[in-house]
Amino acid sequence: MVKKTILWIHKWLGILTGIVVFFVSLSGAVYTFQDELKLLCYPSKYVLRVDRVEQDPKPLSELIATAQAQLSPTERVSRVDLYPAKNRSWVFRAAETDPNAFGHWNYHRYNKRVFLNPYTAETLAVEDTKNEFFQLCLQLHMNLLLGKTYGHALVGYSTLVFVLLLLSGVILWWPKKWRGKPLKRALSLDWKTKWKRLNYDLHNVLGFYSLFIAIILGITGLVFSFPAFQKAYIDFFNAFSTQVDVKDLRDERPDTTVYRSADPLDNALHYLLEKYPSADMMSVRLRDASAPLLDVQIRMEENRSGKFKWYYFRRDNLQVDKVQDSQHLPAGDKLASLNFDLHTGSIGGFTTKVLACIVSLVCASLPITGYILWWHKSRKSKKRNKTSAARAAY
């Protein structure tokens, strides 16, 4: 009786959220390799056609002005993603959203990226990111292209239901006997069986083997979807942390006699490029001139957003106010910083990315095989009812 109730709940929750899970999982599988695929698809935007560049990059303030000139007067550069590697372009991002708008194209008032050669200030490309393929995949994954207010909640609650479906699926999958034919059917696929049975096995067996990683993808998705869940998650694990030692930074500040510029951000960035030449990427959020602090996030390893240093400089004298290091965070904050790497599979490099991609494709298949199971049983039930009605009439 209990298992029958769970099956009924599993069926109807799956029917209600299946189409959302399909699109979210499929777009997630594609987005897993977006960093690698962008380099393959758009090499002229991201890779400089030079073997080695000897000179230093131009001042960031000059490059920002160059990028800004490529945009309309109503569009403003708000973030810069730059690479210490000499063969990479720098990306100047301009975006503005309307949080209450319905639909992707209304939600993004504008979303542009200007790609510059940082050593010559040459404009390599101006991208309308709102219509770029991988951005559309990301927005489909995050909010089904419906905008944040409507789509984000729909994806979030569907993800929560999907995690519950995975857990209830384990109960339904559980073999009656842990030996012989029942165990073999629960753990393996028979490609020679009839298609109806094969579809059933694809749903059960693939769902079981992908369970652990699928739950990780689901829970990390919930962290992105629900701020209250994220806070509870961080606070819970922080409770188990000891006090973290913080480096005394009172004497750390860029030497402006080495690199003189009227713009303090130019000096701060030059200092960090000299200090971390092997870092993968640096991101600068452009603050108002009245903001007392300048901040630069440094991604230390390729495709690993969870390994970073975040520098905060005082605008007036460039003294380092603080450095947030991912290696010296309390347990909850460290897990939260790794959330993107866990969600995309980049936590363990290429191997875990492949696993995340495969499991995402399996998750996309589960609503399809589940719908087929429901459709077949519905037809069978209707046929049985017609037969019973005919017999009764006879």
Rank of each mutant, 00 (worst) to 15 (best):
V163H: 15
Y209S: 09
D325V: 03
Y157H: 05
R109E: 10
L172Q: 12
D51V: 02
N143M: 08
R76N: 07
S44F: 13
L269S: 01
I9K: 01
F229V: 06
L124N: 04
G28P: 02
K86I: 06
L187Q: 00
F23A: 07
T120P: 14
Q70N: 09
Q324G: 07
R88C: 00
R76T: 07
D316C: 04
A214F: 08
S278E: 12
A291R: 02
F240V: 04
M281E: 15
S25V: 02
S61Y: 05
V2E: 04
A390W: 04
S388C: 05
L265Y: 08
S346H: 10
L160W: 10
V223F: 02
N117L: 02
C363K: 07
W90G: 00
K383N: 13
S27F: 05
R88E: 02
K130L: 08
L124C: 04
I6G: 00
K192N: 14
V323Y: 09
L82E: 03
S326P: 07
S27I: 04
M300T: 00
F313N: 07
G370I: 01
L217I: 07
G221I: 00
S305C: 06
K184S: 04
F212R: 10
I213W: 15
V2W: 07
Y42K: 06
V161D: 01
R391M: 14
A364D: 05
K3Q: 04
D35S: 06
